[in-house]
Design a protein around this nucleic acid. Structure first.
Length: 422
RNA sequence: GGUGAGGUGGAUGAGUGGCUGAAAUCAGCAGUUUGCUAAACUGCCGUACGGGUUAAACUGUACCGAGGGUUCGAAUCCCUCCCUCACCGCCA
């Protein structure tokens, strides 16, 4: 959620930035500003009347104690009139506040200056490419066939017990998945991230805090009876750990990592790249989250990008890093880098990580602040990234390292997996 | 699921209608004192939104789990909901 003050400071640039993000109804911004004026005006009226009322009540108390009953009764009549005038003011105030809030939550975060213009994924900017493109042998096949051949993943059974997009990992497939999670967590904790194992369901306030609600309402699984949401990413429970808190500046940066399964309904994307592990309703992911001072967040973003890049490099995968264009970025993000890994048998780039700076967009909702050097509390910045999402990494490992004799795993995984080949 | 007890500032915890934005203690911050550490003493020490100011000072309102209600006046009384703890039942 943006701060009204930010909108007021530079109305023209804010509108331009919103348009860059693909938000067209910039008239909303004008409405917000006038509603804020109304809010202030009514706040003033309300407070003033309330002050008079409070003073009168105090007097009544005094009069009563002195036994001046008649005077007290007269005062009560006066108060009655004041109260009458308070009601409409209070209503106007509440109304303005509510309208203001409802409009504010519609606005996406403003994109950073270096975010490229554009509306579609094709307009994302390739920052750099790394690793080398694998040479496949003649009989190479896509990962879903390899999964079947080596009995690693059973999509049909997942279909039976739940539905499509809920694969069953089996034998060495399950073990490799576990080994990858273990490796990723280890890699993150060695870089100073504290490991967490958070709840996989969150309440409404948490889902709102990180921006999933109301923007992604239909994309989360919802347990209606308890009003809990299955997490679409560990970002939600992790970031919410510090909701409603004022942190000491010395406690920053806070660095967290967690493995969780992620649940996404993926409504509206049926039939699109859903083959095999490409797009699932439940998948595993190791996430990193940082809470930092405002001044350092872009530096930290670069560090996180580098952190993820090295992890992908260590797996020997061919990858590229994209700076997302305004139209392809998520609602809450100010700057996002996507990592895509080359899936050799599919001849496709698959997104395996998304690293973003949210600036104060989340912390404004979360009321997550810190006391700066002057003792003033200000909103912290939050960042997060995948490190890494499992299924597509698994798909690429299977495809890119397949040989006639089996799948030759990346060296770094040998120890974690307890073997070199599948 | 049943019964009982509770939800107060960073923590512990007092407070059953006005003198309570809230005692006290601890933690924290600043200072004084004493070779150092420690201790003692003094002061400060919630948040949000307004007014005010160059900035402060100062000042108004709201907030004692959440939302309603009673009252001139509510942390305090009433209602609804949420949560926590203890015991019982069920159970990984």
């Amino acid at each position: 959620m943006l701060q009204v003050q930010v909108l007021k400071n530079d109305l023209v640039s804010v509108k331009k930035l919103l348009e860059k993000k693909g938000f067209k109804e910039t008239g909303v911004v004008d409405e917000i500003i006038s509603l804020d004026e109304e809010r202030k005006k009514q706040t003033f009226n309300y407070d003033e009347t309330k002050a008079k009322l409070n003073a009168a009540s105090k007097e009544i108390g005094l009069l009563m104690r002195n036994g001046q009953k008649d005077e007290a009764e007269a005062k009560k009549k006066e108060v009655e009139e004041l109260k009458q005038s308070l009601n409409p003011t209070e209503e106007k105030l509440k109304d303005a506040e509510k309208k203001l809030f409802n409009l504010l939550i519609l606005l996406p975060n403003l994109p950073a200056e270096i975010v490229p213009e554009g509306k579609t994924p094709e307009e994302n900017e390739v920052v750099r490419t790394g690793g080398s493109k694998p040479e496949l042998y003649n009989g190479a096949v896509p990962h879903w066939e390899l999964a079947k051949k080596y009995d690693l993943i059973d999509f049909e059974t997942g279909n039976k017990i739940t539905g499509s997009g809920f694969p069953v990992y089996k034998g060495k497939g399950a073990k490799l998945q576990r080994a990858l999670i273990q490796y990723f967590l280890e890699y993150n904790t060695q870089a100073g991230y504290t490991e967490f194992l958070p709840p996989f369901m969150v309440n409404e306030a948490s889902a709102f805090g990180t921006g999933q609600l109301p923007d992604k309402e239909g994309q989360m699984y919802h347990a209606k009876e308890d009003n809990f949401y299955l997490i679409p990413t560990a970002e939600v429970p992790l970031t919410n750990i510090y909701r409603d808190e004022i942190l000491q500046e010395s406690a920053l940066p806070i660095k967290m990592t967690a493995y969780t399964p992620c649940f996404r309904r993926e409504a509206g994307s049926y039939g699109k790249d859903v083959r095999g592990l490409n797009r699932l309703h439940q998948f595993d992911k190791v996430e990193i989250v940082q809470i930092v001072q405002a001044e350092t967040s872009y530096e930290v973003l670069d560090q996180m990008v580098e952190h993820v890049e090295k992890l992908i490099q260590s797996l020997g995968l061919h990858y590229r890093i994209l700076r997302l264009c305004g139209g392809d970025m998520s609602f809450a993000s100010a700057l996002t880098y996507d990592f895509e890994v080359y899936s050799a048998a599919q001849d496709k780039w698959l997104e395996v990580s998304s690293v973003s700076n949210f600036e104060t967009f989340q912390t404004n909702r979360l009321k997550m602040r810190y006391k700066d050097a002057n003792g003033k509390s200000q909103l912290a910045h939050t960042l997060n990234g995948s490190s890494l999402a499992l299924p597509r990494i698994l798909a690429c490992i299977l495809e890119n390292f397949q040989t006639e004799n089996g799948i030759h795993l990346p060296v770094v995984m040998h120890g974690y997996f307890g073997g070199e080949m599948i």
